[in-house]
């Protein structure tokens, strides 16, 4: 196979633009919102109130039990038929945030439960309320425990954002598709896109180890 280096070079611009203006902000926005949602859902799931905890359980079950692509299509192509029309970018962010919210909620719940009961008691014995103990004592320790699994979620999300190309969001993969259709160099362009995804994930993985090291003191040794 002869590599068309000229095309590699000339397509780099659109692909990197797709990554920088599409994939990366989409992943960052969805992950941040998704994490907030996940924390809320995790706390609901841990609530002693049965209704609250059931709502959280059903949400998690639906998100994990249905394909992300279906969730995305329901929001973008489905909702207009009930009168709700959301443009591509917000649709993508909503779908990905809801998805991260479901998966990360279980990670955060498990991380909270992994903090020894004695830490709750130590918080209580110095007079802290449940909320104070949660925020100041439990969550910082749970954060450290959840870094590796949440990094997994984030890395999956970066790759899953390619699905947004199917609802017309201009991101890395959609750019690759367009250049490929124009040049008919499918192998080259899709491999090029793959390499860029891979590099983004390598950066994220190294960020993960740095964060783990920094938060190391947050766990009992």
């Amino acid at each position: 196979m002869n590599i068309n280096w000229e095309l590699v070079w000339s397509s780099l611009g659109p692909l990197l633009t797709g990554a920088i203006a599409g994939t990366i902000p989409l992943a960052l926005a969805s992950f941040s919102l998704g994490l907030l949602l996940a924390l809320l859902v995790a706390l609901m799931r841990l609530s002693r109130n049965r209704v609250v905890s059931a709502v959280a359980r059903i949400y998690i079950s639906v998100i994990r039990g249905t394909p992300l692509l279906v969730q995305l299509f329901v929001i973008f192509y489905g909702l207009p038929s009930v009168g709700i029309t959301i443009s591509p970018w917000p649709s993508a962010i909503i779908a990905f945030s809801l998805n991260v919210g479901g998966y990360a909620a279980e990670v955060i719940r498990a991380a909270i439960l992994s903090v020894p009961k004695g830490q709750w008691e130590a918080g209580h014995t110095i007079g802290m309320s449940r909320r104070q103990t949660l925020v100041r004592i439990i969550l910082p320790q749970a954060a450290r425990v959840s870094v590796p699994p949440l990094s997994n979620t984030f890395i999956s999300l970066v790759k899953d954002t390619s699905l947004a190309s199917l609802i017309l969001v201009t991101e890395l993969f959609r750019q690759a598709q367009q250049v490929a259709a124009f040049s008919q160099e499918f192998m080259l362009l899709y491999l090029e896109a793959a390499v860029i995804y891979w590099i983004i994930c390598l950066v994220l993985a190294s960020g993960q180890s740095a964060l783990e090291k920094r938060l190391d003191r947050y766990v009992a040794h």
Binding site: P116, G118, Q119, E121, A122, H124, T125, I126, G127, I137, P140, Q141, R144, R217, Y218, V219, A220, H221
Partner: peptide
Amino acid sequence: LRDRSAMVFQHYNLFPH
């Protein structure tokens, strides 16, 4: 009761972070 007493635990239960 909690405001008036303070507990020292068998396993210390210090805040590791």
